[in-house]
């Protein structure tokens, strides 16, 4: 069994933290993992993307072949669209609804949301609103991970929750709890 995930967003939105949590959970579960990320110039407010591969068998390529990703997790709606050619025909898209407009020619937002919701398996949610509801306005990325958790079939949600407690352990119990609340609200588990 394997699962190929594209993580994407804009530099500074925290996609690498999502990758770190999933990677921790996968490591604890004894899965094989490869995770390619982008450093350097593009981290300055440009589009950023990470290929995350989880498998029960050996993984060869660090990059996911085009047209074969099982899931796109995007912190930004236009960025989700950008990587659709990486997705397989039955793949799912989980994306933030809120646009990050930092370029002058950002396209019509409604058109972007229409294109996303027309996809066969897409879940587009207002993650910053949910993060505020969870009392953790900086936890949008953990909300998104919560929403995505039901599509990450290779790992149970409990494994991701456990990984959050490990990754944020150094920052204290309050930060762990805030991130778990964000994750749970995203996952639809209530508070």
């Amino acid at each position: 069994m394997k699962q190929d995930i594209i993580l994407c967003g804009v530099g500074g939105q925290g996609i690498l933290s999502i990758a770190t949590v999933i990677a921790q959970a996968a490591t604890a579960a004894g899965l094989h993992i490869k995770q390619a990320e982008v450093h350097g110039m593009s981290q300055r407010g440009g589009d950023v993307q990470s290929d995350l591969r989880l498998s029960t068998d050996e993984i060869f390529s660090d990059l996911i072949p085009d047209g074969s990703a099982d899931l796109i997790i995007s912190m930004e709606p236009m960025e989700a669209l950008r990587y659709i050619p990486r997705l397989n025909a039955g793949g799912a898209v989980v994306s933030a609804a809120e646009p990050l407009v930092n370029i002058p020619d950002y396209p019509d937002q409604n058109e972007i949301l229409r294109a996303l919701s027309a996809l066969p398996h897409a879940e587009v949610r207002e993650i910053s609103r949910i993060a505020r509801e969870a009392g953790n306005p900086k936890g949008s990325n953990m909300v998104l991970l919560g929403i995505a958790s039901k599509y990450i079939g290779i790992l149970p949600a409990a494994a991701l929750r456990e990984a959050i407690t490990v990754i944020f352990a150094a920052k204290g119990q309050d930060i762990i709890d805030a991130n778990l609340r964000a994750f749970d609200l995203g996952a639809g588990n209530g508070l």
């Binding site: 407010g45 440009g46 047209g67 229409r114």
Partner: peptide, 16 residues
């Protein structure tokens, strides 16, 4: 087999 980009996407270059 590759899906097409199904909506409008603009380049997002890095910036200061």
């Amino acid at each position: 087999k590759r899906l097409a980009v199904p909506g409008p996407v603009a380049a997002r270059p890095p910036q200061l």
